[in-house]
């Protein structure tokens, strides 16, 4: 039971990190769109890719926790 809890804490920490990362990406993307509304679609694509990379880290953590 203890190992399960530690894994959950690890996953939670990873979620915090990833949440901050995605938040930063989202805020920067929004700033970018506000500055250059005509580049919105390009920024969105780049944002999604970056978010996917950050999210992958969190998911790796979850997977490691599952293992």
């Amino acid at each position: 039971m203890i190992t399960g809890s530690i894994a959950a804490i690890g996953a939670g920490l990873a979620a915090i990190g990833a949440g901050m990362g995605i938040g930063k990406i989202g805020s920067s993307a929004m700033e970018g769109i506000a500055r250059q509304p005509e580049a919105a679609s390009k920024i969105q694509t780049a944002m999604l890719i970056a978010a996917a990379f950050v999210e992958a880290v969190a998911l790796f953590a979850v997977v490691v926790a599952l293992v």
Partner: peptide, 13 residues
């Protein structure tokens, strides 16, 4: 590998 895990983990989650 990241590609595979990302899809798996997202949908399973």
């Amino acid at each position: 590998i990241a590609l595979a895990i990302r899809l798996f983990a997202n949908i399973t989650a």
